[in-house]
C-alpha cells in the first residue's frame, strides 16, 4: 500500500477504514499520516494559537504588546549597561542586542512551551482522534504570533541607530526557516519526552538559562578571541546566527550555515525517530 492510501486512513473523520493491528504496527506510515493530517488541519492549529494568545492577555489593555514594551525596556537598559561594560559603541551594539534578545526570547519561550505540547492538550487528546502534529503546530504558531509583536522593534532600533541593513538581510528568511524547523522538531521531541518523564521541564529551564549566558546573546562572539572557533559547536548560537548574521553583520559565514543545517537535520532525525517509535504510546503517557 502506498503512502497516499495510508494517509487517507489517518483523516480524523471521513476515514472510512480503520485498522490497528498490534502485530503489524506500520509505525512509519502512521507517523507520516499523522504529520500529513496535522498539516491538513493547520487552520485549526492557527485558530487555537490565536485563541491561546487572546486568552493569555485577556483583560489587559495592551495585550501581547506588553511583551514588546518589556523587550524594548530590556534592550534599552541592557544596551546602555553592556555597551559600557564591553566598551562598545552604543550605535553599533544596540542593533546586535535588539536582534539577539528578540531571537533569544523566541527560542527560550518555544523551548519552555514545547515541554507542555502534549500534556496541556490532554483534554483534547483523550477525547478525540486528532493528529498529534496539530498540537505541535499550535505551539509553534502561538510563538510565531508572539514573536511577531516584537519584530517591529528591530526595525525601530535599526532606524534609530541609522544602520538599516542592505538586501543581504533577505538571507534572514532562510535563517528563519531553519529556526522554524528546529522549533517544530523540538516541540515534537520535547513534548513527547516531557509527557513521558515529568522531570524534564525543570531540566529544560536550567539548560536554557545556562545556554543564555554561554551563547553570544549579550556579548559578541569576537570577544572570545581564539575561543571563537569553538562557538560553532553551540547549537543555540548557530541557529540564532543564521537569522542574526544577515540582519546585523551582512551575513553569516558558511561554516555557521553548515553547522546550523547539520544541527537542524540531527534534531529532525531524532525527533522523527521518537515519533515513529512512540506515537501510539503517547495517548497512554498523557
Amino acid at each position: 500500500m502506498g503512502y497516499s492510501a495510508a494517509m487517507q486512513r489517518e483523516m480524523p473523520t471521513g476515514a472510512d477504514h480503520y485498522v490497528r493491528d498490534a502485530a503489524d504496527p506500520r509505525m512509519l506510515s502512521r507517523a507520516l499520516g499523522d504529520l500529513a493530517g496535522g498539516w491538513r488541519l493547520r487552520r485549526l492549529a492557527w485558530a487555537l494559537a490565536w485563541l491561546d494568545t487572546r486568552n493569555r492577555y485577556r483583560g489587559s489593555v495592551f495585550g501581547p504588546f506588553w511583551l514588546t514594551f518589556s523587550t524594548a525596556v530590556m534592550i534599552g537598559g541592557l544596551g546602555l549597561l553592556y555597551s559600557t561594560l564591553l566598551k562598545l559603541d552604543l550605535r553599533e551594539y544596540l542593533p546586535f542586542l535588539a536582534v539577539s534578545l528578540i531571537l533569544w526570547n523566541m527560542i527560550g519561550q518555544i523551548a519552555g512551551e514545547a515541554c507542555l505540547t502534549f500534556t496541556n492538550a490532554e483534554a483534547i487528546i483523550r477525547q478525540m482522534r486528532l493528529p498529534y502534529a496539530v498540537h505541535v503546530l499550535r505551539i509553534v504558531f502561538r510563538n510565531a504570533i508572539s514573536a511577531a509583536h516584537s519584530l517591529p522593534l528591530i526595525f525601530l532600533v535599526f532606524l534609530l541607530c541609522g544602520r538599516l541593513p542592505g538586501p543581504e538581510a533577505l538571507l534572514a528568511l532562510p535563517g528563519l526557516l531553519v529556526l522554524g524547523t528546529c522549533a517544530l522538531a523540538g516541540a515534537l521531541l520535547l513534548g513527547m519526552l516531557c509527557a513521558r518523564f515529568r522531570d524534564i521541564p525543570p531540566i529544560v529551564t536550567n539548560v536554557m538559562q545556562l545556554a543564555f549566558f554561554m551563547s553570544p546573546v549579550l556579548w559578541k562572539p569576537e570577544l572570545l578571541g581564539e575561543g571563537q572557533k569553538w562557538l560553532v559547536l553551540n547549537p543555540f548560537y548557530v541557529v540564532m546566527e543564521v537569522v542574526r548574521g544577515p540582519l546585523v553583520e551582512g551575513g553569516a559565514p558558511a561554516s555557521i550555515w553548515a553547522a546550523a543545517i547539520l544541527f537542524t537535520a540531527a534534531l529532525v532525525a531524532v525527533s522523527a525517530l521518537f515519533f515513529v517509535r512512540f506515537r501510539a504510546r503517547l495517548a497512554f503517557w498523557i
Binding site: H17, R20, A22
Partner: peptide
C-alpha cells in the same frame, strides 16, 4: 482511535 491496541487487532469501517 485514541488508544491503540497493545495486543490483538481492531478493524472498523
Amino acid at each position: 482511535g485514541i488508544y491503540e491496541p497493545v495486543r490483538g487487532r481492531l478493524e472498523m469501517q
